[in-house]
Design a protein around this nucleic acid. Sequence first.
DNA 1: TAAATTTTCCGAATTGAATCCGAACAAGCG
DNA 2: CGCTTGTTCGGATTCAATTCGGAAAATTTA
Lengths: 204, 204
Amino acid sequence: MARKPVQQRAKATVDAIVEAGFIAMAERGPAATTTRQIADIAGVGVGSLYEYFENKEEIFQVMSERFVADTIAMIQPLIPTIVRKPIKEAVLDLLGHFRDFLQANNERYLKCARYAMALDFEQHVEPLQKTLSELVTQYLMHHPETLKIRNIPTMSYIMINGGIYSVVRHLCDPAPPITFDELAGGLADMVSHYTEREMALVSP
Amino acid sequence: MARKPVQQRAKATVDAIVEAGFIAMAERGPAATTTRQIADIAGVGVGSLYEYFENKEEIFQVMSERFVADTIAMIQPLIPTIVRKPIKEAVLDLLGHFRDFLQANNERYLKCARYAMALDFEQHVEPLQKTLSELVTQYLMHHPETLKIRNIPTMSYIMINGGIYSVVRHLCDPAPPITFDELAGGLADMVSHYTEREMALVSP
DNA sequence: TAAATTTTCCGAATTGAATCCGAACAAGCG
DNA sequence: CGCTTGTTCGGATTCAATTCGGAAAATTTA
């Protein structure tokens, strides 16, 4: 950010700009949104954008950050509940919340996710990855029998990345080949079958 | 495309433009490549771009199409070999070829994949998805015992999408938390464990 | 072959969006 | 209230995308 807002009304301006960014992005997609549109929706002059953001790109970056932060904030309180459930239910529960979250507010975050997954990859999605790894760790600690499973970091990596992408892709698809429930069930089965098979292999 | 090239030299111009697009994209990423750069690299005037492409975006679209077509062309001849292998080897084999393909030519296609996965989703990646579904179908026919597995379309969807994304993401990451071999092995295990567990459940 | 026609190429001119900037307006503070 | 600092703004500027009309090359026609 080019400059920090110190007064209250300046903070409100920054918020209005980011909010306008979400609205414009949800309406027309990131490529088609102009600085003029964002300024108009926010009810500020175009010049004001550049008081707090280096350029248009940075507005999207901040939106991306907020998206990831909000996702994490959505997941954190679920952790204590989720870690106590059987694996399949746990996955279904998490995915259901994730879908609702992405679709809220005219799919604001779904459109943002599509953008964020393309450009930033490491930079912004990484904290989310860390949170989910944390969730996996806690889950394992609540189910000590699963600690025998090999390659846990690798499997986390695959399921977290593959899971997020599959869900975002599916929700963006106007004519998906399978239903969301099938997708969620499939991901849950994938995890639970893998777990069960590993446990069978390790302690026969 | 705005107009079809009919003469030979015009076809060469179109090729040079697309080729230049790949080079420019690999160097600076899609956002930072200008029409001037593409024209300079291709050795043509800026005006020539617009003889055969509606706009800059369409150049990227054609690149995307070529990327997907080349990916399919890379996979097709592998199918007869792959379908005869045990599941784990089959997955490892496919992933190895996919990685080499993405990394060839200064990672030209890896950078393209990153872009294609963001924007086009359905439109361009879909033929690839269809080819891979085909591969799965053929694999199942060569291993009749696996036909009992439930939810095959769902599992294909998850493994194809999740697999492609995980690999692209991993190869783009300058400091990945796991090695590529671990990732590939993990995906292979994921598939094979799921298969084994399903077979055990269905015919105990 | 030469003229006529079609195709291709080009780069200066146009357009429009992104960004800059300095004047005008508000807020905090002695 | 003067003074300083923070904020807003929109016209001016910059730069990339796109257009356009004419020249050059290829092809066809006579």
